[in-house]
Amino acid sequence: MAERHDHVDTVLDQWQRAAPQRDASPMATFTRLYRLFKYVDRAVAAVFREHGLHEGEFDLLATLYRSGEPQGLTPNALRAAAVLTSGAMTHRLDRLESAGYIRRVPNPEDRRSVRVRLTAAGAALLEALLDDYLACLQRLQAPLDAAQRRALGGLLRELLLPLEANDDV
């Protein structure tokens, strides 16, 4: 069976001809990751749009849903989990609250702050969206068998760990 070639193979061949003295091999991994991200981002954004959300709004709803905190989370805890500026967080919370998906309630531990809670409507939206989101991700990883998926996940973790360890977010 002939080896299959993708766009990145073409780019690497071009670099080999244009600059044979340079090692362009890291592009094999990272250009593919970048291109893959663009395809994944497009597919996932379409799922979120079908449910009237943007990725960042899904991220906030999902963080609240999976936190297991019935009292909700503080905006700072949400901001840290979603890696957002306070201005971006406020905008998203305002939009989600006006849509009825979250509500801000007084923080029983600190009267100066609030907690953000997922409403029943927010939980229902997330559950409906989650099925579509997971189905989309399943379709995207369909070319890989279970062992390949585990191996890829482990390799990506190895690349991510040192970056996260040095990140100040």
Results as ranks from 00 to 15, higher is better:
Glu3Arg: 07
Arg4Val: 10
Arg4His: 08
His5Tyr: 10
His5Ile: 02
Asp6His: 02
Asp6Thr: 00
His7Asn: 08
Val8Ser: 01
Asp9Arg: 05
Thr10Cys: 08
Leu12Ala: 02
Leu12Asp: 05
Asp13Ile: 00
Gln14Leu: 10
Gln14Lys: 09
Trp15Met: 14
Gln16Lys: 11
Arg17His: 05
Arg17Glu: 13
Ala18Ile: 07
Pro20Leu: 04
Gln21Tyr: 06
Asp23Val: 02
Pro26Gly: 03
Thr29Trp: 07
Phe30Ala: 01
Leu33Pro: 10
Tyr34Gly: 10
Arg35His: 11
Leu36Gln: 12
Phe37Trp: 14
Asp41Ile: 03
Asp41Leu: 06
Arg42Ala: 13
Arg42Thr: 09
Arg42Phe: 11
Ala43Phe: 06
Val44Phe: 05
Val44Ser: 03
Val44Pro: 08
Val47Gly: 02
Val47Met: 01
Arg49Ala: 13
Gly52Glu: 01
Gly52Tyr: 03
Gly52Trp: 02
Leu53His: 02
His54Glu: 15
Glu55Trp: 11
Gly56Trp: 02
Asp59Leu: 13
Ala62Gly: 08
Thr63Ala: 12
Gly68Lys: 07
Pro70Tyr: 00
Pro70Leu: 03
Gln71Lys: 12
Gly72Pro: 08
Gly72Leu: 04
Leu73Ile: 06
Pro75Gln: 07
Asn76Glu: 15
Asn76Pro: 04
Ala77Asn: 09
Ala77His: 09
Leu78His: 04
Leu78Asn: 03
Ala80Phe: 09
Val83Thr: 11
Ser86Ala: 15
Gly87Gln: 10
Ala88Trp: 03
Met89Cys: 04
Thr90Ser: 15
Thr90Gln: 15
His91Tyr: 12
Arg92Gly: 05
Asp94Arg: 14
Glu97His: 07
Ser98Asn: 09
Ser98Met: 09
Ala99Cys: 06
Gly100Lys: 04
Arg103Tyr: 02
Val105Pro: 00
Val105Leu: 06
Pro106Tyr: 06
Asn107Gly: 01
Asp110Phe: 00
Arg111Met: 06
Arg112Tyr: 04
Arg112Pro: 02
Ser113His: 06
Ser113Gln: 08
Ser113Tyr: 03
Arg115Tyr: 01
Arg115Met: 04
Val116Asp: 02
Arg117Glu: 12
Arg117Gly: 01
Leu118Ser: 04
Thr119Ala: 00
Ala120Arg: 12
Gly122Ile: 01
Gly122Val: 00
Gly122Asn: 00
Ala124Trp: 04
Leu126Gly: 03
Ala128Phe: 02
Ala128Ile: 03
Ala128Cys: 05
Leu129Thr: 13
Leu130Thr: 08
Asp131Asn: 10
Asp132Phe: 06
Asp132Ala: 14
Tyr133Gln: 07
Ala135Phe: 04
Leu137Val: 13
Leu137Ala: 11
Leu137Asn: 09
Gln138Trp: 12
Arg139Gly: 12
Arg139Phe: 03
Leu140Thr: 10
Leu140Met: 15
Pro143Glu: 05
Pro143His: 05
Leu144Met: 13
Asp145Asn: 14
Ala146Asp: 15
Ala147Arg: 14
Ala147Asp: 15
Ala151Thr: 12
Gly153Leu: 12
Leu155Glu: 15
Arg157Ala: 14
Leu160Tyr: 13
Leu160Gly: 11
Leu161Gly: 07
Pro162Trp: 04
Ala165Ser: 12
Asn166Glu: 12
Asp167Ala: 14
Val169Asp: 15
